[in-house]
């Protein structure tokens, strides 16, 4: 075996108990794996099971059926749980509800204390983590005066300091304004470039454009898998799953219908512009000759 995947989800099913009689099936036979260094987006509407899935990835939940492996460790093996969680770090939706301490640096230290990092090493790790998210100047501030985006960056730093191999973001941008979201997305991009494995769970389509692979979850099952480009082409299917397509993909599709040489898979402003340039340029060449 050349490359053992970092994360393996095998035939996982999960259900919640509503009361003593009824249960709610959230996930049914979901399987996929994530390679080291990959950027994967898991997308689905509210109630599709995507959040449950993300919580299975670091053993916060344990599958009812099937198994989840992190670097070949089973998440059901409770003796390995610390190792699993320091490999797969997780950032949650509410910026306010994941900060434990009353000073930024202490909050970042919380995870380090839990995994027994020696005191002499902590300072450097905290400095590095805060630098990575651009929050160094807030090190000694109380977190409740920060904006949502800044709190979320602190939460990411708290995970980064633990030096995980994989970062799972469970709708981490959904409560943020556009600037906060842009900041967090930029950090994700930078981390990915430096080799971090990233799994982002979201319902914002614009956030999946940068992923290597998109997994669409619907009714607790994997409905589609593919590159963002492939997924966006299936506009009608996405709409039937109550998901959006970026406006640029829509425009590209309309233009492709009228001008067949226009690339229907363009998905952001830059790609639309370059398509327009390509076609108008060709046209100019033709009219010259």
């Amino acid at each position: 075996m050349a490359n053992e995947p970092l994360l393996q989800v095998e035939d996982v099913s999960y259900s919640y108990k509503i009361n003593s009689k009824e249960t709610l099936q959230v996930l049914t036979d979901v399987s996929f794996s994530v390679q080291k260094g990959e950027y994967v987006a898991i997308i689905g509407h509210n109630g599709s099971g995507k959040s449950t899935l993300s919580k299975l990835l670091n053993g916060i939940l344990v599958p009812e059926k099937g198994q989840v492996r992190v670097k070949n460790l089973l998440t059901s093996d409770r003796t390995q749980i610390k190792e699993i969680r320091r490999t797969v770090g997780m950032v949650f939706q509410h910026p306010d509800n994941q900060i434990v301490a009353t000073i930024v640096e202490d909050d970042i230290a919380f995870g380090l204390e839990n995994i027994g990092v020696p005191h002499d090493e902590m300072d450097a790790r905290i400095t590095g983590a805060l630098e990575a998210v651009g929050m160094s100047e807030y090190r000694y501030r109380p977190p409740h005066h920060l904006s949502g985006g800044q709190k979320q960056r602190v939460a990411i730093a708290g995970i980064l300091a633990m030096q995980p191999e994989c970062l799972v973001l469970d709708e981490a941008t959904s409560m943020l304004d556009s600037y906060g979201r842009d900041d967090v997305l930029a950090i994700m991009r930078k981390l990915h470039e430096n080799g971090m494995t990233i799994i982002t769970v979201t319902h914002h389509m614009n956030e999946v454009i940068e992923a290597d692979r998109v997994i669409v979850i619907a009714e607790g099952k994997i409905a589609m898998v593919g590159s963002p480009r492939e997924i966006f082409m299936r506009q009608q299917e996405l709409e039937s799953l109550h998901l959006d397509v970026p406006d640029c993909s829509r425009i590209a599709k309309v233009l492709h219908q009228e001008v067949s040489s226009f690339n229907a898979t363009a998905m952001n402003p830059e790609e639309i512009v370059s398509e327009v340039k390509r076609l108008t340029h060709v046209n100019q060449e033709e009219s010259k000759s």
């Binding site: 994941q98 202490d106 204390e113 839990n114 633990m162």
Partner: peptide, 21 residues
């Protein structure tokens, strides 16, 4: 939410920890 976030950061009550400050 807070419990989940603490667990995800390897908090286990009663286990040994180091101290930052």
């Amino acid at each position: 939410d807070l419990i989940l976030a603490m667990e995800a950061r390897c908090y286990t009550p009663g286990s040994s920890r180091t101290v930052y400050t």
